[in-house]
Design a protein around this nucleic acid. Structure first.
Length: 1004
RNA sequence: GCCCGGAUGGCGGAACCGGUAGACGCGUUGGUCUCAAACACCAAUAUCGCAAGAUGUGCCGGUUCGACUCCGGCUCCGGGUACCA
């Protein structure tokens, strides 16, 4: 083969790998196992842009490296194929989501294959396949049929619970969940319960349970969303408003696992940021629950939760959430009207208002008083919406001197703000939550420290039965139902209004066909449209489906044994592969997917179905690759006006481009910005218009990489020039008042007709004064996506892989710049030339390698190995470049050097490596089964070392010393030389510091 | 507000455990090759200075023979999160 032709060799090897199942992993092997997992993608219609493969490339390098190091590596890929976009598309077009999804997956597989990833495609899973979601439903049924025993601290089958009910009734059962939801009964009563009664009693114990829940209801999407699907009061997908609504919902009792999810984090090799986010999300706080009796209401008590019992003597009033259940009972006739008014006003305020308007203080006095349990002082009971019904007990004891919100509230309503600690300061300005100092005005804890006071108070309250220490969690149970079509049906049916799980033998409960994908006219979810969709032809099924995170919570287990029809994963496969050794994916899943998946794993472990402690041992978040968008300055928009478009090549307009321009201008009007991949300005042939250049690929409807330009007439600029000369236009523009101060910048010269290129002439000043570049997330809607296919066509997949790694540290966010890829492309050509110096056939020699060549090779072996182990891929690419540069300078074409080099490079540029490996005489495709070259320290040993010599830390000269020279010898040699005379400014040495192998510093 | 990150040439970034700051690549400039372009190759490229040299890793201070690296105090940028009691 004459020259390096990536387009030929890459296709060749991709076909070879596919035909020979090169990367198929075996479930039995003598080798140690290693499981490398990528977060599987949702197959969106837009396909991949250059940002997506970053993590896949890195994990593929690790995979290929581990294979060379003798591991049996599992590296699968699949698709999270249930989801909203396909369903939204279905609602609009009537196209079945399964068809859209299938088509998108095809694109993904094609794109992923063209990058040369070594996935074991025989293990591909799709969450929307019935053969897969059968087991998702099966796990749901396991949750439905389990409860959490706090005494054993694990999930147990419900049969164990009902057996105890029959024996001892509800007495002494310590189950996770809200005790208030549950009834007490004796064993005798249990035996007399009907089946329906028994199911009702058991329901609040289940790990998957139905309950009236305050949910995030999104009318725009017609479904319920979880907290992490809501951003700033709007749905993450679609940006529709979200409101709170009380609805019967399926929930998963993830709170039962809160403590274990928290503790498990300490065992994981994950980024600290992710662990911290999970800790905050779970939000464990240690405090106390304190009961305040209510004055004149014998039976009423208000329970508050506080993390600062020590401040209880400063609690001058209580605040209840407006939704608190005692509000009605407590409100005095005199305050009734004001309270009703306040509650009504709160309801009118949407969640969004409450969030944006956190500063305003509002509240109302109920007229009632409670008694502070430590001193029996009466305290006023207020309502305010800053207290959340869903956290703690929905009531707080307000300590205005110690809590800023309570402080503002007290100031606003003129309530007292007594100091409780001698360390509190500035109480006329703000609250001081200090834990320092000794307590004052605080009855039994006067003079005590924080620690002493807390202990004494809890003991006091527990003794009187008015309080106890309590751990609280911010995290809520996970809502599990979505009123959508394109998801796993929840395997529940209703008999006589009671929910039953369908029999495992009847799984999968297949998603039925429906005629339309909208909710029904009566407001039921889309599944309400299914005809004759009944269990045993009699009983109606649950109509909501599972949320997006259901299928992704266990997919990594299915890869271990993807076609097993009898079990979700066989015991042998699960035992062999254990848990994921390296999990690569985006940081956006920190609190969603990664928490749910851990929860399911712990649950499965409780049932004895999996064997490791945690599912993902090491996690790496690849950083995002950002796109550069050219944004039109708002001031110029009013002056820009859409006229038309011409194709530069022939000067004619096309319908497609017209359509695109309409989109562009819509975008400008809506967002005040236009995003483009390149920035050029042009003048129309008739010289009346300035154009803003847009290089486009798939961002344009029907686009194909040709040059299109958006044309704008600048109505207020009277342009009369001129030979397509942009400089003149700019001059003219500047001469008008409007643009006198405009700055012109242009990066890409398009007008390259010889020396008259106006961009060359004034290049860094020229520019669309219309736009300014901005770095932001790469997205189709921002017109800043870069399509990897185009780069693969031009430079090859190996170059793209190398370049993405070369961009910078894997975990860092970094802007994309296509220009740089020529550097790695040049490197690959140079590497190729080492093997084919005459651009002809392979020409490697069998001569023995020189020490210099061996040194270059072994430094590379050592460094690349280290770099892969610490995921520093950018530095290893640069080391490859240095290595090839040096070998080229040494004119080294020796097999003894180049063959190991091919192995080193093969994880990064697998196609090129396969080709060279075969040319070197090895069996086709065998490079992935070869062994990594062995590092030999002895080739790096130097006999002389060059020391920098410094005076007071400033380097002045260099000097050679034998590697074996001692510090004393070096010091003597330096002092004997003329070094000090030349640089010492006449001073004498006070001290000489010799760092062996490093440097010499003379202090004067 | 709180919790995490980060800041180094024109750009992306490199620098082991505190030891020659700016590797590698892009870009730029000059040159060779070409009718020309592309490709390729050679040289230069932190700043100021002809040079010797001086100054330089966001800012202020400290520790040290020596600081991008450690400590104290800031500024700005990015991400997460929020009436969580």
């Amino acid at each position: 083969m004459p020259a390096y032709r990536p387009e030929e060799i890459e296709k060749k090897w991709q076909a070879h790998w596919k035909a020979h199942h090169t990367f198929q992993a075996q479930n039995h092997s003598e080798k140690p196992k290693y499981y490398v997992l990528d977060m599987f993608p949702y197959p969106s219609g837009a396909g991949l842009h250059v940002g997506h493969p970053l993590g896949y490339i890195a994990s593929d390098i690790v995979t290929r490296y581990k294979r060379l190091r003798g591991f049996n590596v599992l590296h699968p890929m699949g698709f999270d194929s249930f989801g909203l976009p396909a369903e939204q598309y279905a609602i609009q077009t009537g196209q079945h989501p399964a068809l859209t999804t299938e088509k998108n997956i095809e694109t993904y597989v094609q794109q992923l294959s063209s990058l040369g990833f070594s996935y074991d495609w025989s293990r591909e899973v799709r969450t929307s396949d019935a053969s897969y979601y059968k087991w998702t439903q099966w796990i749901f049924l396991k949750l439905f049929n389990s409860w959490y025993n706090l005494d054993t601290n694990k999930a147990e089958p419900l049969t164990a619970l009902t057996a105890r009910f029959a024996e001892q009734g509800s007495e002494g059962i310590n189950a996770a969940g809200d005790a208030d939801e549950r009834h007490s009964f004796t064993a005798g009563q249990w035996k007399l319960f009907s089946e329906k009664q028994r199911l009702a009693v058991v329901l609040p114990y289940r790990l998957a349970y139905q309950q009236d829940t305050s949910v995030n209801w999104c009318p725009g999407l017609g479904t319920v969303l979880s907290n992490d699907e809501v951003k700033d009061g709007l749905s993450e997908r679609g940006g529709f408003p979200v409101e709170r609504r009380l609805m019967p919902q399926w929930n998963l009792r993830i709170t039962a696992y809160a403590d274990r999810l928290l503790q498990g984090l300490d065992t994981l090799d994950w980024p600290d940021a992710v662990k911290e986010m999970q800790r905050n999300w779970i939000g464990r706080s240690i405090g106390a629950e304190v009961t305040f009796p209510v004055q004149n209401h014998e039976n009423a008590q208000i329970k508050v939760y506080t993390t600062r019992v020590d401040t209880i003597y400063g609690a001058t009033f209580l605040v209840l959430a407006p939704e608190h259940e005692l509000v009605d009972t407590l409100t005095t006739p005199g305050q009734r009207a004001a309270v009703d008014e306040y509650i009504a006003a709160t309801k009118r305020r949407s969640e969004r208002d409450r969030m944006t308007d956190v500063k305003a203080v509002s509240g109302v006095f109920t007229g009632a008083y409670a008694l502070n349990p430590v001193n029996n002082e009466p305290v006023q009971i207020w309502l305010a919406d800053y207290v959340l019904a869903g956290y703690g007990t929905g009531a707080v004891m307000a300590v205005p001197s110690g809590d800023q919100r309570d402080y503002l509230f007290a100031k606003h309503f003129n309530l007292p703000i007594p100091a409780i600690s001698d360390a509190q300061q500035g109480l006329d300005q703000q609250a001081d939550p200090t834990k320092e100092g000794r307590y004052i005005n605080s009855g039994i804890i006067n003079g005590l420290t924080y620690k002493e006071a807390t202990q004494k108070l809890i003991a006091f309250l527990e003794e009187k039965g008015l309080g106890k220490g309590k751990v609280n969690f911010r995290q809520r149970d996970a809502i599990f139902g979505r009123q959508r079509y394109w998801g796993e049906p929840i395997p529940i049916y209703y008999k006589d209004g009671t929910a039953y799980g369908i029999a495992e033998a009847d799984l999968p409960l297949v998603l039925p066909e429906i005629d339309e994908y909208k909710p029904t006219e009566t407001g039921e979810p889309p599944l309400g449209r299914a005809q004759n969709w009944l269990y045993k032809d009699k009983y109606p099924y649950e109509l909501s489906t599972m949320p997006g995170w259901a299928g992704s919570s266990w997919y990594y287990l299915r890869y271990m044994d993807p076609t097993n029809e009898a079990r979700f994963v066989s015991e042998e496969a699960e035992h062999y592969w254990g848990s994921v050794d390296l999990y690569m994916g985006g940081a956006e899943h920190a609190t969603g997917h990664l928490l749910y998946a851990r929860f399911w794993y712990l649950f499965l472990k409780d049932l004895g179905l999996v064997s490791s402690g945690e599912p993902f041992q090491k996690l790496i978040n690849q950083g995002m690759i950002l796109g550069v968008s050219e944004k039109i300055n708002r001031t110029s928009i009013t002056k820009a006006n859409y006229i038309g478009q011409i194709d530069l090549a022939n000067g004619e307009e096309s319908d497609e481009a017209q359509e695109y321009l309409r989109l562009v201008f819509d975008n400008i009007q809506k967002q005040g910005k236009l995003s483009t991949a390149a920035n050029n300005i042009f003048v129309s042939a008739d010289a009346k218009h300035l154009f803003h250049g847009v290089t486009h690929d798939d961002a344009l409807p029907g686009g194909g990489g040709e040059f299109t330009i958006a044309m704008m007439s600048l109505l207020n600029v009277n342009i009369e020039c001129v030979d397509k000369n942009v400089l003149d236009v700019v001059k003219l523009a500047k001469s008008s008042k409007e643009y006198a101060d405009a700055v012109f910048v242009c990066k890409d010269g398009f007008w390259q007709d010889g020396k008259s290129n106006p961009f060359k002439a004034g290049i860094s000043e020229l520019s669309p004064f219309l736009t300014t570049p901005e770095v932001e997330k790469m997205s189709k809607s921002k017109y800043n996506v870069v399509n990897p296919n185009i780069l693969i066509d031009k430079y090859g997949a190996d170059a793209l892989r190398l370049y993405e790694m070369f961009l910078g540290p894997l975990e860092q966010y970094k802007p994309w710049n296509t220009n740089g890829i020529s550097g790695v492309s040049g490197f690959l050509k140079k590497l190729w030339r080492l093997f084919h110096p005459e651009d002809g056939a392979l020409a490697v020699t069998d001569e023995a390698a020189t020490p210099a060549e061996l040194k270059v090779l072994h430094r590379a072996i050592q460094k690349v190995q280290e770099d892969i182990e610490k995921f520093s891929f950018n530095t290893s690419v640069s080391l490859f470049m240095i290595t090839v540069n040096e070998l080229t300078a040494l004119k080294c074409h020796k097999r003894a050097i180049l063959e190991p080099l091919v192995l080193l490079v093969s994880p990064y540029a697998p196609h090129l490596a396969e080709e060279l490996w075969q040319e070197l005489g090895h069996a086709p495709g065998s490079i992935s089964t070869a062994s990594y070259p062995e590092f030999r320290e002895e080739y790096l040993v130097e006999n002389t070392v060059t020391y920098p010599l410094a005076i007071n830390g400033k380097v002045r000269e260099q000097m050679q010393f034998a590697a074996a020279a001692t510090g004393a010898e070096i010091e003597a040699a330096v002092l004997a030389s003329d070094f000090l005379a030349k640089h010492g400014e006449g001073k004498s040495a006070r001290k000489v510091i010799v760092v062996p192998g490093r440097m010499v510093n003379v202090v004067v």
